[in-house]
């Protein structure tokens, strides 16, 4: 399997959250196929960029924000743009 680039990893993490509506951090780490240190790095970046938000109820769960949703919607456009201009 080819190594995923940063944009693909972010897309995959957001997609997992979207498919589950809300998910706890441990299953998200498992499903994302990343090492825990890598996962932590991406997780913090997604929180900082406000792509995801943490909700505290019985357990801590993660949900997608509007911006995260927007990233998923625009993902193909982003990839096509980067490919077109070889950026």
């Amino acid at each position: 399997m080819a190594k995923r680039n940063k944009l693909e990893i972010i897309r995959d993490i957001l997609k997992i959250i979207q498919n589950n509506h809300s998910i706890r951090p441990t299953p998200l780490l498992r499903k994302s196929n990343l090492s825990s240190s890598q996962f932590k790095k991406y997780y913090l970046e997604l929180l900082n960029k406000k792509f995801i938000k943490e909700t505290y109820g019985k357990n801590k769960t993660i949900t997608l924000t509007e911006k995260g949703q927007k990233y998923l919607e625009k993902y193909l456009t982003i990839i096509n743009f980067i490919d077109e201009f070889e950026l």
Binding site: L7, K70, K74, T77, I78, F85
Partner: peptide
């Protein structure tokens, strides 16, 4: 026109472009 793409990705190539 490329502002939104950069805001979403912070991609360096898009930034320099």
């Amino acid at each position: 026109g490329t502002k939104e793409l950069y805001n979403l990705t912070s991609h360096k190539g898009i930034k320099y472009f």
